[in-house]
Nucleic acid binder design. Structure first.
Lengths: 336, 336
DNA sequence: ATGAAAGCGCTAACAC
DNA sequence: GTGTTAGCGCTTTCAT
């Protein structure tokens, strides 16, 4: 009864493989790492032994000793279930794969404390670089890592308290175009629905909307602005409230696609012919049962820019930090 | 000129922290790991030193020596940009977080060779467990890992060549219900659109559709079955071809939501009143411009079942492998 | 309560 | 070509 049920066998190491093959540890290392100048005879014996024992090289031990990159990068986003972020993750994984690198994906859920903890956890695992969609919090705690040579690229929002590569959208220009489109369609009372001004992108988009109104000689009416619209249901409620006023708006500008979808649902439910434009395109937007204008952009190119910037840094590019701004374009969807 | 520009400083280690604090390496280890019985005085000195140097404990070295779990699991899916998989990733990360574990997400792109490589890479990083949506290929190569105690849970499709926990949908029952619904609505010529029979879920769903037709006394007409419908555009073309026949079908059953969306677009474009039912719900399905029936299920609960099964195993549950089948339900969406 | 020494699995540096 | 030794950064074991 030497191997009772439940025995947890120790994982075979290079020493085990070497003993079984009758060679030295170093020869096993050479074979496993495909280094040249090893006799074919020994190669065969080592590979046979490794296969028989089910040997798998311990990548963590390997990088610990060699000091080579861990071939792992960290991606910090808000929540992976959101198509915006899952597309970013997809592109990041795709670029990472071209560099034979795996991706640890972590979601901050918009919580700065959680974000900081996750970034520390990623650094503790000695990732080769970080791709971060930051919360609004301070990122100065990352400075030691950056100074020690861990590249960090920020995407979609700038970092605070840290100078690093940043890839952003033309939020202001896109919002300006969206509102200008509504104005061109004859609207004078345009409601604006947003999540929170404390989110960088929202703040920029509000500025763009204000610019467009000002350019048209229209006043910014705070009573037509609804904040804290955090999901489609809230957007629907906001639209309902605004339309039920004595002086309702004739058009709505939604500052992200979740708000757009919720607003659209409520407008359609009422068969309202109010104008609607929204920031971000979304799947099936061209199938919506009523006209809709969206501020669109190439999300995959956006994410690819950031990921390739990161691998450029990992590859040794030590030039000054860059900020890249991606353009947007207005897409009009008529009724289907 | 001791620190010329471009100097890559060595990362501080516990030894560096110890020297600066005037204590031993072991004391630093105790403080960093919050072990008891250390004088407050020394704790303060160590923490000050660690902060000043920007020390970050090397998690890889730590788990190497201690043999403790790496607090990292691997998720292998097909492609993270697909909402089905990104929802799974979200739930997996959520469950992992409750176990203070990070998630490495890798996409096989439905390529068995790539899947095998990725699973090996994950094992090389000594993940504590694997959550796998397998391709059709053989998974016997994972046997050494499983025997060495690395838990593996398969989701959505069973593994071949390996006995392990598996979480599946009631694909057959769901497809049966979907087709039965079309039959109940009076349809006798029902086209079936699918990706590939080599995918487990597709195969099961075809069997369910056949069962429903047989139960209604209807023959299975191979000329109404379209395979290799891999994306919405292909689905649209398949629908167009079938409708342009001399004896067109009066209804369509789409075996996944991408096919459903493509079929719906083409039906709507033609203002066809053909029946449409599809496997999988999708976002905004209730906003589509024409009636639609979907075979729905609780995707988050599905993924949670698998993730919790995995952490049960990681936590020491060595009972016999289980197979769990999640039910589906039929949801009818009238015109909006 | 603190520290010295050994060693996790692997690779670098140097023999032979 | 192959083996021996030391050591990556950390934790364990065992002194004191």
């Amino acid at each position: 009864m030497t191997h009772a049920h439940g025995d947890r066998l120790r994982r075979p190491t290079m020493v085990d493989v070497a003993q079984r093959a009758g060679v030295s540890l170093k020869t096993v290392s050479r074979v496993i790492n495909k280094s040249p100048h090893v006799q074919q005879d020994l190669i065969d014996r080592v590979l046979e032994s490794a296969a028989a024992l089910g040997f798998r090289r311990n990548h963590n031990a390997s990088t610990l000793r060699s000091g080579l990159p861990t071939a792992t990068i960290g991606l910090l986003i808000e929540e992976i279930a959101n198509p915006f972020y899952s597309t970013i993750a997809d592109v990041a994984a795709e670029v990472a794969r071209h560099h034979e690198t795996l991706l640890i994906t972590a979601s901050s859920e918009e919580d700065p404390a959680r974000e900081q903890q996750l970034l520390r956890d990623l650094c503790a695992r000695r990732v080769d670089g970080l791709l971060v969609v930051p919360t609004g919090a301070d990122h100065a705690f990352l400075r030691p890592e950056v100074e020690l040579g861990v590249p960090v690229v920020f995407l979609d929002r700038p970092a605070t308290g840290l100078l690093a590569d940043t890839v952003l959208l033309d939020n202001r220009g896109g919002a300006r175009d969206g509102v200008a489109g509504l104005v061109a369609a004859g609207h004078r009372r345009i409601a604006v629905l947003l999540d929170s001004l404390s989110v960088y992108t929202m703040h920029e988009r509000v500025l763009g909307a204000q610019e467009a109104l000002a350019a048209a000689g229209l006043a910014w009416d705070p009573s037509l602005v609804r904040q804290d619209v955090r999901d489609p249901a809230a957007a629907g409620r906001a639209v309902a409230e605004l339309l039920d006023r004595a002086d309702p708006p004739t058009a709505f500008f939604a500052l992200n696609n979740r708000i757009t979808v919720g607003a659209l649902q409520e407008l359609w439910r009422r068969r309202s012919d109010a104008g609607l434009a929204g920031f971000d395109d979304f799947e099936l937007s061209h199938l919506m049962p009523r006209p809709l204008t969206v501020v669109a952009y190439d999300l995959r190119a956006y994410a690819r820019t950031a990921a390739e910037l990161l691998f450029g840094r990992i590859g040794g590019d030590h030039s000054a930090p860059r900020t890249v701004i991606l353009p947007t374009r207005l897409v009009q969807h008529p009724s289907p």
